[in-house]
Design a protein around this nucleic acid. Structure first.
Lengths: 134, 134
DNA sequence: TCTTGAGTTCAAGTATACTTGAAGTGTTAC
DNA sequence: GTAACACTTCAAGTATACTTGAACTCAAGA
């Protein structure tokens, strides 16, 4: 069975080792083994968990709700409705968030074109562009 | 000229009035007028500014960088290169963020289908689905 | 007139998510 | 064998972005 040190995990997920210790402390990572010298040993179980945690975090789910999800996940049959409610809501929230960001991206791109137009006008000593004409 | 009270702004942007006062305190909102009774008066200038601020915030630009952007913006000719660098970088960051969220959304949707499959299996007393088969 | 509601300033407090420091142990490189 | 490095625990500190509380002013309605 493949195992991972804290440093390997840290490099794999581009997060400091302290964050991995913190996730364990707050119960997001569980069953983390130790060597004879008390060093943490992570397994593929933790890889799967970290993939889930980073996906949730990335899409803006607060730590408290990630904890809630994994608490439910300990007893799936007992909590299946709550689990489905949580992930379906988070799916909808994520879709909305992406749509909002896509429209914000258009706004940002408009700003980029606007200031590029101003730079061109400065360089050529011509009239500045108008926000609505660009 | 159309003006807005703090309450109207608060309702327009779905943020508490305290946040509008805070944005003014840290210099994100400037030239906010007052009535004879010291009540804030916002104008279309502030609407434009708030649209920019919410766009930047939404796409994850930290307040410190939003402040930086608007400090540059006070003297566009002097700072045009810095402004373009900032917005172009933020455009690229936003594109990356959207792409990451889109792939995270697939992960979330996989979870949704997985747990829906489990619920179906529980209801029908059949075998649970496998993560990789769904 | 009195109360309700909206606003004001200023300082202090809070929530979230880590991060850092201190003091120590064990393993590898020269 | 000793220095450098990686790791440990535990408590305390930090960064970001607001939020709340206290004490007050002003205008409108019953």
């Amino acid at each position: 069975m493949k195992t991972y040190t804290i440093k390997e995990m840290s490099e794999l997920y581009h997060i400091p080792a302290s964050t991995l210790r913190y996730y364990e402390e707050i119960g997001l990572l569980v069953n983390v083994g130790r060597t004879a010298n008390h060093q943490r040993i992570y397994t593929d179980e933790h890889i799967v968990r970290m993939d889930g945690i980073t996906c949730f975090k990335n899409t803006g789910l607060p730590i408290a709700q990630i904890q809630e999800f994994y608490r439910y996940e300990c007893d799936i049959p007992a909590n299946i409705d709550a689990i489905i409610a949580l992930v379906e809501k988070h799916e909808a929230d994520t879709v909305r968030q992406i749509e909002k960001m896509q429209s914000d991206l258009l706004h940002i791109r408009h700003k980029v074109r606007f200031y590029q137009g101003i730079k061109k006008a400065i360089d050529n000593q011509t009239q500045w562009p108008d926000w609505n004409e660009i």
